[in-house]
Structures are given as structure tokens and as C-alpha cells.
């Protein structure tokens, strides 16, 4: 059959990382790139090194743009901030190169070959901060880029993607949350049907920049510290860690408040009368102690919905992409 060679891809287009998921043998394979870039002055030597180490980059006249995973390390070496094609879940209106860089990043996770008739399902944030128009613009532009590559394209709410990626055991009933860089995305589905979703504007970036502001560090530096074994265990010897824990609480509390508001605004959700699971995903959910801390905040909030369990996704960094793939395959 002709169709068997057609690729189906789940694509998580996050503020922080872009992840592509594909079905592979018995399981899933993932390809990820940091959604960031950095420009450095051009030199032949630098370019040779980058090429030799197959670091994604391109040359623009007197500058080299390094994008993806290596961008953060290089930025840290040069003591500059990375540049970000996206902010708060959508294309960054303050970054003139956003579209061009997104296109490059997508090429690097999707591959170069033309994709006529292949399918891709990409995630979009729920309305929240940025105006709705921002999401519409963002979604339209991403869709256009993917169409230009030749894909058949559809989009999927990010929180719902977490549910599709993680909650098959409850027949896709429950709450999925993605704690990302730009946003936290929350959705509730009932037997696969989306019931509500929202996003909150405080994610990993908010933690980084807030902690940077109070400690006088660069946000990129704070981020690297945060990602290097920081844990929410209540004992913080360093000032950065102290600051991180404060803003971590802030991020989690916003999500809990959002849940409370959303549940209470709904006529029937509070009447569910049965416990549903809640699953946590996203890079910002990675620190040790995160789940326990979040559960505590949930308990304190006395929500009108009870949870049968609160757990981390099996692979928090890939849950969204996997869910998008599952949705694309189920189409």
C-alpha cells in the first residue's frame, strides 16, 4: 500500500523546545531542539568547528547564527542571552528573526526532504495571557510553514496533548498539565472530549527571569543552574536556589488557582462525582520534589474535583509530542 510509507508526526512547538515524535518499531522516537538561537561574529575557524560537530547553524554575512540545543551552551560561554523565536507560548513579536529561525528549527527536527502528503499534528497553547489574536496569528503562521513543507497539518491544544499522551488508562479522562518554559497549559478531558483548558503565563522563563532579577545573574545562567539538579526539597543553601523555590511556588500556585477558577465556573465539572487522574509534564515539572509540592498546593486549595492520583508523566519532556502523535495517528 502506498500509504504505509507516509510519515505521521506529532510536533510540540514549545516556547522552550521543539519536539517531534514518530512511531518507531514498538514505541516512539523523539527529536528535540532548544527553541533558541544565538548570533556570534563570523570566523572561518568557528564555522569549521560548528560544521565538524554538526551543530545546527547558518551564516548571515558577518554573523553566524547557532540555533537549537547548542545555543544555550554557546551563549553561556560568551556570557550573552540566547534569542528566542517564541515567548509566552507564541511567536515572539519582539524578535525579527522569529519566523526564519522557527523554520530552520523545524527543518532540523523534521528533516529536509519534501513531505508531500505526510501528516503532522502540532500543539498550540490555550488562550491565556497573550491575546487570542496572538494565538491565532501564531497558529496560522506555523500552519503555513508546515504546509509549505508539504504536510497535511492539524493543530491540537497542548494540555489535551498531554492527556492523549499519558491518560489512556483512564480512557483519556482527567487533567493534563504541561509546565513549560513560556506557559503552563492545563486541560481537562472526559473520555477524550475536551471540556476546558487554559494557560497561565508563569512558566520556566518567568522563574528564570524573576530569579535573575533578584540575584543579579543572567536568566540563561539561572536556567542552567535550575536545570542542573535543583530540587524543591525545602533546603536551599544558595541564593539562586532560594529564589528559584519562591518563583516555583508562584508558578504552581497560579496553575492551582486557575484550576479552581475553571472548575468553579463550570456547571457540571464540580458534579462529576468521581475521582479523575491528574498528570504533570513539561520541563518545569522535572525538579525533584515537584510532584509532592504540587499535590500539597492542590490539597490546600480544596477544589470541587477530587483526584484519583497526581503523578508525573512517564517522560515529562516528551508527553506533549507523544500526545500530538497519538492524535495524528487516530485521525
Amino acid at each position: 500500500m502506498r500509504n504505509t510509507t507516509k510519515e505521521v508526526i506529532g510536533l510540540d512547538i514549545g516556547t522552550s523546545r521543539i519536539v517531534a515524535a514518530r512511531r518507531e518499531n514498538d514505541g516512539y522516537g523523539f527529536e528535540a531542539q532548544l527553541n533558541a538561537f544565538v548570533t556570534i561574529p563570523y570566523s572561518r575557524i568557528t564555522e569549521n568547528v560548528l560544521t565538524k560537530e554538526s551543530v545546527p547553524h547558518c551564516v548571515n554575512g558577518a554573523e553566524i547564527t547557532v540555533f537549537g540545543n547548542e545555543a544555550a551552551r554557546i551563549a553561556d560561554l560568551l556570557n550573552v542571552e540566547t534569542r528566542r523565536p517564541m515567548t509566552r507560548g507564541v511567536l515572539n513579536p519582539g524578535e525579527p528573526q522569529s519566523l526564519a529561525q522557527i523554520r530552520r528549527l523545524l527543518t532540523s527536527v523534521l528533516g529536509e526532504a519534501p513531505k508531500q502528503g505526510h501528516k503532522v499534528c502540532f500543539t498550540v497553547p490555550a488562550p491565556g495571557v497573550g491575546s487570542e489574536e496572538n494565538i491565532t496569528y501564531h497558529e496560522t503562521m506555523i500552519r503555513q510553514i508546515l504546509r509549505d513543507f508539504g504536510y497535511e497539518v492539524r493543530s491540537l491544544n497542548e494540555g489535551l496533548a498531554v492527556i492523549y499522551g499519558e491518560l489512556e488508562d483512564s480512557n483519556y479522562t482527567g487533567v493534563g498539565i504541561s509546565f513549560g518554559g513560556g506557559l503552563c497549559n492545563v486541560a481537562l478531558a472526559y473520555m477524550s472530549v475536551p471540556v476546558l483548558s487554559f494557560s497561565t503565563p508563569k512558566g520556566g522563563d518567568f522563574i528564570d527571569s524573576s530569579a535573575a532579577a533578584v540575584t543579579g545573574e543572567l536568566a540563561n545562567r539561572v536556567r542552567l543552574v535550575k536545570e542542573d539538579g535543583f530540587s524543591l526539597n525545602g533546603h536551599y543553601s544558595e541564593k539562586i536556589h532560594q529564589a528559584l523555590s519562591v518563583y516555583y511556588d508562584d508558578m504552581m500556585q497560579s496553575v492551582v488557582n486557575g484550576l479552581k477558577e475553571a472548575f468553579e465556573a463550570s456547571r457540571n465539572v464540580p458534579k462529576l462525582g468521581k475521582k479523575i487522574p491528574l498528570v504533570l509534564s513539561g520541563g518545569s515539572a522535572l525538579p525533584a520534589g515537584f510532584r509532592d509540592r504540587f499535590e500539597k498546593l492542590i490539597q490546600e486549595a480544596s477544589l470541587p474535583v477530587q483526584f484519583s492520583e497526581i503523578r508525573l508523566a512517564s517522560d515529562p519532556l516528551y508527553a506533549t509530542a507523544k500526545g500530538a502523535l497519538v492524535a495524528a495517528l487516530a485521525d
Binding site: G128, V129, E132, P194, L196, T200
Partner: peptide, 9 residues
């Protein structure tokens, strides 16, 4: 809070 509630899709 700066947040709105929406239904996906």
C-alpha cells in the same frame, strides 16, 4: 489573574 478560560480546538 491575567488568564482566560477557553475550550481547545
Amino acid at each position: 489573574m491575567n488568564q482566560r478560560i477557553g475550550r481547545p480546538g
